[in-house]
């Protein structure tokens, strides 16, 4: 195995680790830090792939990823939780070990799902496709198990990271134009959600999504 392939594997493993860390993290601030690290690893991964395959557009993609996912979005989220004064919020999670076991099952599922695809693909990143799918599924699981709004948004962003990683590992990334579009979408999405948070808190005095359950058309 060449050194760059080994490095890519290392990055994939790190991403998987970060996904699990996010799943088990109770504090919102640490979640944001983990998200930023995910961005850093993604950017590094793009640089390594770009260097080893000679595809220069991956460098731009790495730069964009780093600027957006490691700096800008974490910064916005950080500002948001400071303004909302939920920096030190601790969320009670439902049974961390059980969630972890479900997570392991999801990883096994994802690996087996990706097996036929990665056997067909010819890229040097092909074995990481399973990990990419696993990250998507784990982020989904994280969104399901959270009750508060901000961790759910972070879960959504992590899911997007997983998709991004899947694209890089399957086909060396999307065309730059598409990537730019997605980046803009994510940015705008976070901004809009940020505004929503303030509105939600105005209305319910909390960002706990259980309060939303009251919003039904029929009274019980």
């Amino acid at each position: 195995m060449s050194l760059s392939a080994q490095l890519i594997n290392l990055m994939a493993a790190l991403l998987l680790l970060i996904a699990f860390a996010m799943l088990s993290q109770r504090r919102i601030l640490s979640l944001i830090h983990l998200y930023a690290w995910q961005g850093v690893v993604l950017a590094t991964n793009n640089i390594v792939i770009g260097y080893s395959t000679g595809q220069t557009h991956l460098y731009y993609s790495a730069l964009l990823t780093f600027a957006l996912k490691a700096i800008l979005l974490p910064w916005i989220l950080h500002r948001l939780i400071v303004r909302l004064n939920i920096r030190w919020d601790v969320e009670t999670l439902i049974n961390i070990p059980a969630t972890m076991l479900v997570g392991i099952a999801l990883v096994v599922f994802a690996f087996n799902l990706a097996l036929p695809i990665s056997q067909l693909a010819g890229t040097i990143t092909r074995s990481t496709l399973g990990i990419a799918i696993a990250i998507v599924l784990l982020s989904f699981l994280m969104m399901i198990t959270r009750r508060k709004a901000v961790p759910q948004v972070i879960g959504f962003l992590a899911l997007e990271n997983g998709l991004f990683f899947a694209a890089t590992s399957a086909t060396y990334g999307m065309p730059l134009a598409v990537e730019l579009g997605i980046a803009l979408d994510v940015l705008v999405g976070v901004l809009i959600l940020g505004i929503f948070f303030f509105q939600v808190r105005e209305a319910f005095d909390s960002l706990d999504l259980r309060h939303m359950e009251k919003l039904k058309e029929t009274d019980q």
Binding site: A12, A13, I104, V107, S127, I131
Partner: peptide, 14 residues
Amino acid sequence: LLAVLGMLTFLLLG
């Protein structure tokens, strides 16, 4: 969990 992840990454990435 970490040990299991180690084993799984080994099985997948070799």
